[in-house]
Design a protein around this nucleic acid. Structure first.
Lengths: 184, 184
DNA sequence: TCCATTTCCAAACAATCCGTTCGGTTATGA
DNA sequence: TCATAACCGAACGGATTGTTTGGAAATGGA
C-alpha cells in the first residue's frame, strides 16, 4: 500500500465526516470546523491535506466512476447505463445521496451531469446519430430527465425500485429519442 | 403607490445589486458587504429590509410568475407552457439567468422546479391522466428535461431560438408522454 | 530494536464576514 | 411646517477561514 498509514486514515476520516455532515445539515451549512471536529483531526492537519471544503467534496469524486460503465449497447438496446447505474446507486446510497442529492453541493452535481452527458452522447452516437446541435439538445433533455429522477429518489420523494425508475425513465424519453434518431 | 419612496428605492437597489453580482461571481461567492457596497446602502439599512442574502434572492421570486400562465390546453395541445415561457425568458434574460442559471442560487432553482412541476402535473391531469406514483415520476422526467434545456440555454451552452428549444423539448418527451397517457 | 523522517497536534494569529445596536441626520408625506 | 419614518456610519461581539509555529507522536526502513 502506498503512502503513510496516518495519511490514509486522516483522509478517510475527513471524507467520511463531511459525508455524514452533508446528510445532516446540507453541504452549504457544513463548516471546516465541523469537519475537523467530527473527524477528530487537527486544524493544520486538515489544511495540509485539503485546500478547501470543496476539495474534500471533490476528492470523493472517484466514487462516481460507476457513471462510466462499458457503453456496450447496440442500436436496439438504448440507455444501457440506466438500470445498472440505479442498482449501483442503491448499494452506495449513503455516499451518492450526499454527493448528488439536493443537500449535496452544486459542484459535484454539475460534475455528475457532465459524466452522464458524455455517456448518453456516446451511446446515441453509437446508435447511429450524427453530431449536431440538435443532438446536444436531445442529450440535455435525456440527462435532465434521468438526473431529475435520480434526485427525486435520493431525496426520498419516491420509494420506487430501481427497475420501476428505469421503466419510468425509458417510458418518458425512449419513444422521443428513437423518433429523433430515425430522422438522422 | 403604497409605502415610502425611500423604501422602494432601497429595496430595488439591493435586489438589482445582488442580481448583477450573481451574474459576475455566482450566488455563493456574493457577500452581504458586496451587496450593500454596490447598492450604496448602509449596513443597518440592509438588515432593516432583509434578513439574509437568501432573503434578497427570494424577494425576486415574484418575477417568476410567468411560470404560472393559464393551463388552457386541451388533450391535443400538450405542454402549452413551453414556448410562451421560453419567449418570456428571453425578454427577462438578465434576471432569469441570475435566478435560474447555474451561477444562481440553489433555493430559487428548487422553487422554479416546484412551480414547473405543478404546472406540468396539472396539464397532464387535464389531459386525462390519473393521479398516481407513475404520473409523479413522469412529471419529474418532463420537468428535468425542460429545466435542463433552460439552464443550458441560460448558461450560453446553446444559442438556439425559443422555437428551436421548444421543438427539441417536444421531440424528446412528447411521444413518451402521449404513450404513457394512453395507458391510463 | 533503533532512529531519522514524516505526520500530526494544539494554540494562536490576522483577516473576513455576519448580524446587531446606537445616536444622529435626512427625507417623506400629511 | 412638522411629526414620523427611514437612512447612515461606526462600532461591537461572534463565527469562520486559512496560516504559522514549535513540539509530540507515529511510521517504516535499517
Amino acid at each position: 500500500m502506498s503512502g503513510d498509514r496516518r495519511v490514509r486514515r486522516t483522509r478517510r476520516m475527513v471524507q467520511e465526516a463531511l459525508i455524514g455532515l452533508i446528510l445532516e445539515k446540507g453541504y452549504e451549512a457544513v463548516t471546516v470546523t465541523d469537519i475537523i471536529d467530527r473527524a477528530d483531526v487537527g486544524r493544520s492537519t486538515f489544511y495540509s491535506h485539503f485546500t478547501d471544503k470543496q476539495d474534500v467534496l471533490l476528492s470523493n469524486l472517484d466514487e462516481l466512476a460507476f457513471l462510466r460503465p462499458a457503453p456496450a449497447g447496440g442500436p436496439d438496446k438504448l440507455f444501457a447505463f440506466s438500470l445498472p447505474t440505479l442498482e449501483h446507486v442503491r448499494e452506495q446510497e449513503r455516499l451518492v445521496r450526499a454527493l448528488l442529492g439536493r443537500r449535496g453541493g452544486g459542484p459535484v452535481h454539475a460534475r455528475g451531469e457532465q459524466l452522464l452527458a458524455d455517456l448518453v452522447r456516446d451511446e446515441l452516437l453509437a446508435a447511429g446519430a450524427r453530431a449536431s446541435a440538435a443532438l446536444d439538445l436531445l442529450v440535455v433533455c435525456v440527462v435532465g430527465a434521468f438526473m431529475g429522477l435520480l434526485r427525486a429518489w435520493l431525496d426520498g420523494e419516491t420509494n420506487a425500485s430501481p427497475a420501476e425508475l428505469d421503466g419510468a425513465f425509458r417510458a418518458a424519453v425512449e419513444p422521443g429519442v428513437r423518433a429523433v434518431l430515425g430522422q438522422l
